[in-house]
Nucleic acid binder design. Structure first.
Length: 880
RNA sequence: GGGCGCGUAGCUCAGCGGGAGAGCACUCGCUUCACACGCGAGGGGUCGCUGGUUCAAUCCCAGCCGCGCCCA
């Protein structure tokens, strides 16, 4: 016997253990079933579950559970990435609490500390994923720093290097002066700021009193200026090109060069060039052969290349001092306010410095070619499709990818340097040593590169490294490429694009066929959730309060393509109510002894009621399945919800009551069997979205089940369509609804039972009324139904239902005026529709050009409306 | 400045060439033997604005207004 209400807290964790222990989450590489693969985007090892995770993993689990039920061999590959910078920061912060730094330990000991931390504190999110009901193949869980995955990283690095696609170069990179490492463009956040434009006068050498005015937003970098650029066609400066100006303070002569980069419209038209500290200037410097002078150190303090008085000074302090000095020298022309954007490191929160260093780069432009083609010709498909534009935009303008990081936690770069700086990139120290010996003709001492690789470098290999690559495992052959990658748009560049690059290059095929990009979860007001705003909703709190199924259903129902999700608790509450509703429907079935008899054949049920509900549930299951396959999650949720509540509970179970309580034992038995069978289909259909309550009911309703619901088959039904039964039940629902409306409107006491008189009913209607006499009686509170030829002129309410007029004698309660108004209002409603349709049907263009079936449909509708209006008018006449 | 997206019922959002929908909220009525986390009945929308294409436009196209995001 089911409890009165469903209590998620007592059910969820118990069921999850049962599932996990039974091994149903796992894939079956030996099976003959077609595989279905989703590579779980590995969450950060420092992470804990937030609402975005809850959404993305719910959707992935819906897909996996659905396809598992359809009989596919599903692999949902779980794991996490080592999050180089973030993890190192966490561990360093812990050390700082003890007053220590990583340097107190040294590299190896520090890395051991990180592993210790991982063993203790990592894996939080994996526990939380279990609370969410996620069903990945846990025994196959991987970590990007695993031995196998690390081997893949080394192999890829070495291979790319030998192919000339990985190289060492001295370029400007985004330098984080706090973390002391390079970071990628994607880890730089551009923030708007109210800056200034300072205009400095640089004296022209050999021409006393002549100055070139240059504008700058970063005065401190002027110490590294090695040129002044003007536009080649800017006549104001033509004669200066080739001449020299003297850099103030430093007193360095620097050339005036002509370059398109200088914009004659902007500022003075002349621009100072600091190739070592600005990305644009770097390019200008390269084109014009300017010197590169680095004036900042790793902390972004001025270094030994700056005049002595500024050395060691912080960049912001230096800015102030230099402006003061220029003013003292009489070389500050003016200062203007200048709105601009300033780059910040997204981890450290400090201003990023373009800094000249030796780093490892991947030739991303070359690797991007195949992925671009794959999206162009549809081998990889973005859903929704417009995201391919974003993808193309980035991939077609891609810059070399800086993959080296100056931190300790990560995959150490497999490059060794000889005494003269010759680089040996090999998969092991032994191989490097051998290569060096061959190179030098004798054994030499090598030193290994101290840098590690960008975390995204290893993440990019995830779709095949987790399957055992570079070994040719059966899993690799079977589960690559994956079917779909599910993720948020913010990760398209970081990860999706890079997996595609590596997948094509090393596997020769797309890593996944579909990329489903889902929404961002925002707060109720539509604001991005963030810790600093304090508007974060913790999914685990919602799970505690309303149950996992309610949260999952909410996220699924709100996951419409192309729109962000505004999370509101009332919505979750609403779907908690839905779970309760389902629970109570099951309870009702149980109380009435509903069970599926062995050998039950849904296609063989006889009563209209049962044929109708069987057809409807089959239709619902098909629609839900199609919606999930099309990534229309909200539609899947909505269809399942509406059928369960508005069709099964509101109508079918209500209709079943009089049958259960009636005298026709055969009908009651068939309806019990059908109810139980339909309820089972509902559980199956809802299971991918609400796994817990459905599994619990599945187990509780019968003790003869062969397995878990999660391993049950998705409804794959014989032809059970029954259009005649559907038409009949629609009619019945319409009749009952109409009677209830009149009762409510006429203020008939709910308990009062009425007699019904039916006029002008045709044979079909008479037969239907006869069949469903008991159902109408219970649901519309009607005692007797009689057919009459004429109606009493007054004291009645009248309803037109198709060809028939239904008369409700309400002698004591009827308000004739109200009834007259009600009928007149209905007539007016018909009039409006009739006018619209008549106009349309009078239009020759419409008759000539619209498809015949549209014209026919409109004619039919007009005829129906006119007939109904006639009967309503007759009813009015009868009242007088 | 470039790109993308969004303006549909009080709120949150589906729909997207031929009869305007859902959930929540709201109003009225119900201790109806599964469920008040419920049942029944309602009210509420020139589908942002202006043009165009079409027999037909909430839906397609253009422009405008407002909002959001990404990139420079």
């Amino acid at each position: 016997m089911l409890d009165k209400t469903y209590d998620p807290q007592t059910v969820e964790q118990r069921l999850y253990r049962v599932w996990e222990d039974s091994g149903v989450f796992g894939c079956a590489p030996e099976s003959s079933a077609a595989p279905y693969t989703i590579m779980m985007p590995p969450p950060n090892v420092t992470g804990s579950l937030h609402m975005g995770h809850a959404l993305t993993f719910t959707l992935q689990d819906v897909l996996i559970r659905y396809f598992r039920m359809t009989g596919r061999d599903t692999l949902w590959q779980p794991g996490s990435d080592h999050a180089g910078i973030a993890t190192q920061m966490v561990v360093e912060r812990n050390l700082a609490a003890e007053g220590k730094t990583r340097h107190d330990f040294g590299r190896d000991a520090f890395v051991d500390k990180v592993w210790e931390w991982k063993a203790q504190s990592g894996g939080t999110i994996q526990k939380q994923l279990r609370r969410l009901g996620a069903s990945p193949d846990w025994p196959r869980e991987r970590f990007t720093m695993d031995e196998g995955l690390s081997r893949a990283v080394t192999k890829v690095f070495v291979t790319l290097h030998k192919q000339g696609l990985m190289y060492r170069d001295k370029r400007l990179v985004n330098w984080d002066p706090k973390l002391h490492t390079a970071i990628s463009d994607l880890e730089v956040e551009q923030r708007p700021a109210d800056g200034h434009m300072w205009y400095f006068k640089y004296p022209v050498q050999g021409e006393p009193d002549r100055f070139v005015v240059v504008g700058t937003t970063r005065p401190e970098t002027m110490l590294g200026d090695t040129g002044v650029a003007v536009h080649p066609e800017d006549e104001r400066y033509t004669d200066l090109v080739g001449k020299t100006v003297v850099l103030p303070i430093v007193d360095r002569p620097i050339p005036v060069v002509a370059d398109d980069y200088a914009d004659p419209e902007k500022g003075s038209g002349a621009v100072k060039i600091t190739p070592a500290h600005d990305f644009n200037d770097f390019e200008v410097g390269r084109r014009c052969g300017l010197e590169m002078i680095n004036v900042l150190d790793r902390d972004a303090r001025l270094n030994e290349n700056a005049p002595a008085e500024f050395q060691g000074m912080d960049r912001f302090e230096a800015r102030t001092r230099i402006v003061e000095r220029m003013e003292t020298l009489g070389l500050l022309e003016k200062i203007e306010p200048n709105p601009m954007t300033v780059p910040y490191g997204d981890r450290s929160g400090v201003v990023i410095e373009p800094w000249l260093t030796d780093q490892w780069f991947v030739d991303a432009a070359e690797l991007a070619k195949e992925p671009i083609k794959a999206v162009e010709d549809g081998r990889t498909r973005f859903v929704p499709a417009h995201w391919s534009n974003t993808f193309f935009e980035w991939m077609r303008n891609i810059q070399p990818w800086c993959v080296s990081r100056q931190i300790w936690w990560g995959h150490r770069i497999p490059a060794w340097y000889g005494p003269d700086g010759t680089i040996f990139v090999e998969e092991s120290e032994e191989q490097a040593q051998a290569a060096a010996t061959a190179h030098y003709g004798k054994a030499v001492e090598l030193s290994r590169d101290t840098d590690v690789l960008d975390t995204w470098f290893s993440s990019a290999l995830w779709p095949f490294s987790t399957l055992g690559w570079p070994d040719e495992t059966p899993e690799l052959a079977r589960y690559y490429p994956g079917d779909v990658l599910v993720t948020g748009f913010d990760i398209i560049f970081f990860w999706v694009a890079r997996m595609m690059m590596m997948g094509h290059h090393f596997m020769g095929d797309v890593p996944f066929r579909d990329v489903y990009i889902h929404a961002l979860v925002r707060d109720e007001k539509g604001q991005k959730m963030s810790k600093s705003k304090g508007n974060v909703i913790d999914p685990l709190d919602l799970i505690e309060k309303y149950g996992t199924d309610a949260l999952r259903f909410t996220l699924t129902a709100m996951a419409a393509q192309g729109r962000d999700i505004k999370m509101s608790e009332s919505r979750v509450q609403g779907y908690r109510n839905f779970a309760t509703k389902l629970w109570n429907a099951a309870r009702f079935c149980e109380l009435n002894g509903c069970a599926v008899p062995t050998g039950f054949d849904p296609a063989a049920v006889g009563s209209t009621l049962n044929r109708w509900i069987v057809a409807r549930v089959a239709d619902t299951a098909a629609k839900v399945g199609a919606a999930i396959e099309a990534y229309r999650f909200n539609e899947a949720a909505q269809v399942a919800y509406q059928f369960t509540w508005n069709t099964f509970c509101d109508w079918f179970l209500e209709f079943a009551k009089p049958v259960f309580n009636g005298t026709d034992e055969a009908a009651a038995a068939e309806t019990r069997a059908t109810a139980a069978w339909v309820l089972d289909r509902i559980l199956v259909t809802l299971h991918p979205i609400m796994p817990f309550v459905t599994e619990e009911l599945w187990g509780a309703l019968t003790d003869t089940r062969e397995g878990h619901l999660m391993a049950a088959r998705w409804p794959d039904m014989p032809d059970v369509s029954a259009p005649d039964a559907e038409a009949e039940m629609d009619w019945l629902v319409g009749l009952i609804t109409a009677i209830r409306s009149v009762r409510a409107e006429m203020n008939v006491p709910p308990a009062a039972r009425l007699a019904l008189q039916v006029k002008d009913a045709n044979a079909t209607t008479r037969a239907r009324l006869d069949t469903h006499r008991a159902l109408v009686g219970t649901l519309a509170r009607v005692d007797a139904i009689d057919h009459v030829d004429s109606a009493p002129a007054s004291g009645s309410a009248q309803i037109v239902v198709e060809e028939a007029t239904v008369i409700l004698p309400l002698a004591d309660v009827i308000d004739l005026d109200a009834e007259r108004k009600r009928l007149a209002r209905d007539v007016a409603k018909q009039d409006g529709e009739i006018a619209k349709l008549s106009k349309k049907l009078a239009n020759e263009g419409f008759l000539a050009k619209a498809p015949a079936e549209v014209v026919a449909e409109n004619r039919e509708r007009l005829a129906d409306l006119e007939a109904t209006r006639e009967r309503l008018k007759e009813a009015l006449t009868r009242i007088g």
